[in-house]
């Protein structure tokens, strides 16, 4: 009885808050017909927003993943002074509101700040320009890959890497043939999460962008502008793209989680055996 009640409650919530809105997004997007839908997406400003979003993700994701691999490897393999501090610092973007993150960059790199002023004097605009958007996105996605990789690296352990070295592998050979393949599912998982966040980020990016149409609008910002402009169909058309990204991310996430978990479990079992 309780079970049925609980399941029903859960289902109703999912339907109410997830399923219906997702359907609504697509329904609204197509309200004025397929032609209007594609016109809204093909609009030059929409295309600029899509381009900027893709570019931001294309820069932020590889950098983030590179940092994630380096940080997680160092943390899992070595003891060094400042390790705990590094672990704490990695988490900062998670604990700070994205809006505040954005304001931090404005404070640091705005034209009136010393550093921002210096850059501006050399013709480099950061705030209210693309570099600011990329920086803000980098900042908010910063912990994603590292957080995902640290426990996996720790679980996998260093024995296989040592085996590779003893067998004559060089540092990079070990890295690409043993270290990376051992964490590849976790890495992909981190990559998917990071990509989703990079494309969907609103708060931090909103603060540093300045909303210059056709220049510093990412997709989420563009949606907001359209919406405030009462262009609902167009707003939902662009939203539907982000929604599709979200759905694709969820599917990839489900698939990857199934791959990542067995690695951890196998390691745990091994650890238990060894302990026994």
């Amino acid at each position: 009885m309780v079970r049925i009640a609980l399941i029903t409650i859960a289902m109703v919530f999912v339907a109410l808050f997830i399923f219906i809105p997702v359907i609504a997004v697509f329904a609204e997007a197509l309200r004025k017909g397929v032609g209007a839908y594609f016109a809204a997406i093909a609009n030059p400003e929409a295309r600029a927003a899509i381009r900027l979003t893709l570019m931001t993700a294309a820069i932020a994701v590889p950098l983030n993943v590179t940092f994630g691999i380096a940080a997680s490897w160092a943390i899992a393999r070595f003891d060094f002074p400042g390790k705990q501090t590094l672990l704490t610092l990695i988490d900062i973007p998670f604990s700070v509101s994205p809006v505040i993150s954005g304001m931090l960059f404005v404070l640091l790199l705005g034209v009136r700040a010393p550093l921002g002023g210096f850059l501006a004097a050399h013709g480099i605009r950061v705030i209210f320009a693309e570099p600011g958007i990329v920086l803000a996105t980098l900042f908010v996605t910063f912990p994603l890959a590292a957080r995902e990789l640290i426990p996996i690296m720790q679980a996998v352990g260093s024995e296989e890497e040592e085996a590779a070295i003893v067998l004559g592998a060089g540092g990079w050979q070990m890295f690409f043939r043993v270290t990376i393949p051992n964490v590849k599912w976790g890495l992909l998982y981190g990559l998917v999460l990071c990509n989703a966040r990079a494309m969907g980020e609103f708060g931090a990016v909103s603060v540093v962008s300045g909303h210059i149409q056709g220049h510093t609008n990412t997709m989420p910002l563009y949606v907001e502008i359209l919406y405030n402009d009462f262009q609902f169909a167009a707003a939902f058309a662009v939203s539907s793209l982000l929604t599709m990204l979200a759905i694709a991310t969820l599917i990839a996430k489900r698939f990857l989680e199934r791959r990542v978990v067995p690695v951890k479990q196998a390691q745990d079992e091994l650890a238990v055996k060894v302990a026994a």
Binding site: E159, E160, E162, A163, A164, I165, L167, A169, V274
Partner: peptide
């Protein structure tokens, strides 16, 4: 890597993502 020692680890440390064949071939491939 230059010492040319063979080390068989207490818990084997086989490369889990490689087949038996690839495990044995590893030292030759690098």
């Amino acid at each position: 890597r230059e010492r040319k020692v063979g080390f068989v680890f207490q818990h084997y440390a086989l490369f889990r993502h490689m087949t038996v064949f690839e495990n044995v071939a590893f030292g030759l491939r690098v």
